[in-house]
């Protein structure tokens, strides 16, 4: 056997070697500093909308808009899309990916990198990235819908707005029909009418998780977002519990 001193030296060298090797593998990753998103110039949605003078506007500077989210795409009725409004106006956000913003979010939209444009008559802010362009300031801020009649809806003022329509009903030919075709994932346009004969399209996507719901037969209140396709205004339902059509129909 090795003499005692040799043994001690030997074991010490061993332990030293092990300790040396022990420290060389990185373990804990701490949190990096979050990057700040500058505010820049603050404008209202009405001001934003007015910037569109017939051609697209690409934002490459620091500009921000404060808004509240009135509709998200979680239930599938819209896709990669959201609606936001402030006191002045409303606008449709075209997102780069699904989800990201949720109904009730009070947000600041950082416009750099987004594009203001129109699609078939509907104005939208395109290429919005929820991770880079949206800063959430608060949640559960429900917007009070505007109470309007179908004939009061204005293409300019109310595009993208959250509205409440009272004393409306589905056409009798559509009562009981599913709002959309979930089997083939097809969108269907149903029609609402008021008691004066004014009509409004209710557009529902076959992907929405309430597509199978039948159009109720009664008269009552419906809450939704006003969208536009070419010349037609359309209503998007956010949630079936905002469709309360259980009263007696017109003329009864």
């Amino acid at each position: 056997m090795i003499p005692a001193t040799g043994k001690i030296l030997y074991i010490t060298a061993l332990i030293a070697g092990i300790l040396l090797l022990q420290s060389c593998v990185h373990d804990d990753f701490g949190e990096p500093e979050a990057s700040e998103i500058p505010v820049g110039e603050v404008i209202s949605i009405a001001e934003l909308r007015s910037m569109h003078q017939g051609s697209q506007v690409y934002f490459d500077r620091d500009v921000s808009v404060y808004a509240t989210v009135t509709m998200d795409d979680k239930n599938g009725n819209i896709y990669r899309s959201a609606f936001v409004e402030d006191e002045t106006a409303a606008i449709n956000l075209r997102m780069m990916a699904p989800g990201g913003v949720y109904q009730g979010d009070s947000i600041r939209i950082y416009l750099k990198g987004t594009t203001l444009g129109t699609y078939q008559g509907m104005m939208q802010l395109d290429n919005v990235n929820a991770d880079k362009n949206i800063i959430k300031l608060a949640t559960q801020r429900e917007v009070e819908p505007l109470s309007l009649g179908i004939n009061q809806l204005d293409h300019q003022t109310h595009q993208g707005r959250l509205v409440r329509l009272e004393n409306v009903q589905f056409l009798s030919s559509e009562v009981g029909e599913p709002l959309a075709d979930s089997e083939n994932l097809q969108t269907i346009n149903r029609t609402l009418e008021d008691c004066s004969g004014n009509t409004l399209i209710v557009r529902t996507s076959g992907y929405s998780n309430f597509a199978d719901q039948p159009a109720p037969g009664g008269n009552g209140t419906i809450v939704g977002i006003i969208a536009q396709y070419q010349q037609d205004l359309q209503l998007y339902i956010r949630n079936m519990n905002e469709v309360v059509l259980d009263g007696p129909r017109c003329g009864k």
Partner: peptide, 15 residues
């Protein structure tokens, strides 16, 4: 891109 994840998470206020 780990930094993207940290940034996005730190901005995602939710209830």
């Amino acid at each position: 891109d780990w930094h993207w994840f940290y940034d996005a998470n730190q901005r995602n206020l939710f209830t």
